[in-house]
Design a protein around this nucleic acid. Sequence first.
DNA 1: CAGCTAGTTTGATGGTTGTCGTACAAAGCG
DNA 2: CGCTTTGTACGACAACCATCAAACTAGCTG
Lengths: 133, 133
Amino acid sequence: MGTTSDQIAHPDRDELELGAVLHALSDPVRLKIVAELAQGEMEHTCGSFALPVTKSTCTHHFKVLREAGVIKQRQQGTTRLNTLRRSDLDARFPGLLDTILHAARTSAGGAEEAAASLTAVAGTMGTSAMRAA
Amino acid sequence: MGTTSDQIAHPDRDELELGAVLHALSDPVRLKIVAELAQGEMEHTCGSFALPVTKSTCTHHFKVLREAGVIKQRQQGTTRLNTLRRSDLDARFPGLLDTILHAARTSAGGAEEAAASLTAVAGTMGTSAMRAA
DNA sequence: CAGCTAGTTTGATGGTTGTCGTACAAAGCG
DNA sequence: CGCTTTGTACGACAACCATCAAACTAGCTG
């Protein structure tokens, strides 16, 4: 492992698999990560997410997302900066990310959100207004 | 159990969970089932699919799809008729099914389908966009 | 340098999943 | 009535997965 040029392994755009992406997004923790990553184009560190899991689990989830091609990870110092691979995803699976993100936004949380879901569907588009303060 | 009045259990429309749907669709066998089910609105028997698994596995996959709310199963004689719950899915997760189906169509099979993918993308877009009206 | 911070690696664990084979049940056909 | 067809139920099993704790690495900082 002496190679200092150790770039973290990311799948190529043509290598993206639908099954892997769907599986990556089927976990609530990972879906939350992606949802948070989707609002704003900036880079997020792993620690900037309020996830209900330990660091090791966090590492695992980010790895799954990265290997599925959903996110890109870039090392900077001790921190790892994560970005959504939106353009690659959109190029390969047009509309998939937005649709899932939208569905997650309108149906996340519990099961009694029917009313809120409806309003959200009708009113919210693209820009995220929900931010836990 | 043996109760003959056993209506097969299906989740209600408001009960559909995004994670469960994504997970159900993340398996290649199940994705193929759904894709085959999606072309034409008719009912398919379980045996009408050319699946590379045994009957028991088939039963399992159909059960997963049913419990995720993706398909509806109706008993008729010894056969079980399966239909896609397209309206329920569309109502709860607008565009999700079409987008995934489209992505599956353009990237399924092998890995060398770039040309077919391009044509399909150019031609069939439009249904998966968000509906504002 | 010592300590802190951010995150990985390893190993373990309990749960889930996809797969199968065999046994079973019900409907229909000879 | 028996046999075939269509599919389920029941274990069983290997693989995988999400999770954690503990040990570790590598930058940054006082």
